[in-house]
């Protein structure tokens, strides 16, 4: 179903050939002489286009079809691709951190804002001892989440943060999914890049590309 849709999208992009709501707007040539200009001005003056504009806004006022989202009280759902402040996920099986300390995110980070340090713990296993993201430098490019082999570091959807220093936003503990969320089985996976916003199929219109 999904593939069909995409295929149809790519194979027939010429809107002129498909039945659709698009149509060409008739644009007349610009008048060149004075008489033509006069005729155009006279035509526009009696055509009543101004009243069409008045009627349209009046109709919208009477319909009272308000589209305001009253922000703090109401919120728009944000797309799964949204790249807000990072989150660190835990393993579903054991509730321990997914991060294996491989350091790929530190390596790839385009603005050098991840610092990670590891050590060998009592059981001779590699353990992350230090992990910090300097959000004052992060450009939210998403490379770290893309490169992570364990799906450990991801972007979250939390966009409401305020502080006088962006660096204050989070420590490793803040990013980590809290244990009780884990216990409740409520950790949300990051659908990742290329994920489609819910109901996108109905909302997207074809772009007329046949020029």
């Amino acid at each position: 179903m999904h593939n069909e849709h995409i295929e149809e999208h790519f194979s027939s992009r010429n809107v002129a050939e498909m039945p659709s709501d698009y149509y060409m707007v008739a644009i007349e040539d610009y008048p060149k002489d004075g008489w033509g200009k006069f005729k155009r001005a006279a035509k526009r003056a009696v055509k009543g286009e101004l009243f069409v504009g008045l009627w349209v806004v009046m109709r919208e006022m009477i319909r009272f079809d308000i589209h305001t989202v009253q922000y703090p009280a109401e919120k728009m759902p944000i797309g799964p691709r949204y790249r807000a402040v990072h989150e660190m996920k835990r393993l579903w099986e054991s509730d321990t951190e997914r991060c294996i300390g491989c350091g790929l995110c530190e390596k790839i980070c385009i603005s050098n804002c991840i610092r990670i340090d590891t050590r060998i713990d009592e059981n001779s296993r590699k353990e992350v001892s230090e992990y910090s993201i300097n959000l004052g430098r992060c450009i939210f490019c998403g490379y770290c989440a893309e490169v992570c082999p364990e799906l450990a570091i991801t972007h979250g959807g939390e966009y409401e943060n305020a502080s006088d220093q962006r660096e204050h936003f989070l420590t490793f503990q803040d990013m980590l999914t809290p244990l009780d969320t884990m216990k409740a089985g409520a950790q949300r996976e990051f659908e990742g890049f290329g994920a489609i916003t819910p109901h996108e199929d109905e909302r997207v219109k074809k772009t007329p590309l046949a020029y």
């Binding site: 806004v57 009046m58 919208e60 009272f64 079809d65 308000i66």
Partner: peptide, 13 residues
Amino acid sequence: KVLAFMQRRLGPV
């Protein structure tokens, strides 16, 4: 208010 309603907004509330 009037401008808001005509532009499908709420205006001051």
